[in-house]
């Protein structure tokens, strides 16, 4: 959050262009990054960025201060991204987003633990695989994972942005995390793991 953010927002609501520019400058990196995480294509991320801040300029006077301005911006941006995803319908593979199989977990030998080579994220092909796995998740799960785990928003903020209850947000997050883990475990190729 910016220093004196409330005052800057008030000024922006009065039509002060410098105040608006400061808000855009403060938050446009995060929103562009959100666009890339959700939509993957640079052009789509840029379109989302522009639409989000055009909405800020047009509607900042409607911001009531019930949340922080960045939660409000995330809400606008997320809705735009979800609309874009809907406009390009695709078939998601059947994803068994079930409870984890605790019998299986308890039967597993601890020595089978997946080992992760975090340096491999610098490898383009590896990153592409990670993105493809994330992209398999239906938007309702993917969005929660991106907001909570990649953008470090709280459960409360994420729930507010997506108009969900906090417990629903937690369930979706857990399912997304569990799916990604299972999928990476299935892939277990030399490329992916140590």
């Amino acid at each position: 959050m910016m220093e004196n953010e409330e005052k800057i927002v008030e000024k922006a609501q009065e039509g002060d262009k410098d105040a608006l520019a400061r808000l855009v400058n403060e938050y446009h990196d995060r929103i562009y990054h959100l666009g890339l995480s959700m939509l993957k294509q640079e052009q789509d991320a840029e379109d989302m960025l522009q639409e989000t801040f055009l909405t800020l300029v047009e509607k900042v006077h409607q911001f009531k201060g019930n949340s922080s301005i960045y939660t409000w911006l995330y809400r606008i941006a997320t809705n735009i991204a979800l609309k874009k995803l809907k406009s390009k319908p695709r078939k998601y593979p059947h994803i068994p987003i079930d409870e984890p199989d605790f019998k299986k977990i308890h039967e597993k030998e601890t020595k089978e633990e997946m080992e992760f080579d975090f340096e491999k994220v610098n490898n383009y092909k590896f990153r592409k695989t990670l993105n493809e796995v994330l992209d398999e998740l239906p938007p309702k799960y993917k969005t929660v994972f991106i907001l909570r785990d990649l953008h470090n928003l709280s459960t409360r903020e994420t729930a507010k942005i997506l108009n969900l209850t906090e417990s629903n947000t937690k369930v979706r997050l857990f399912r997304a995390r569990n799916y990604l883990k299972e999928k990476l475990e299935d892939l277990k190729t030399e490329e992916l793991m140590v």
Partner: peptide, 20 residues
């Protein structure tokens, strides 16, 4: 086993955070 499961979930998240 549960500890391993939770570590794997944590590492999966960490991997995505690093990549992102």
């Amino acid at each position: 086993q549960c500890e391993v499961y939770i570590d794997e979930i944590k590492n999966t998240v960490k991997l995505y955070q690093k990549a992102d």
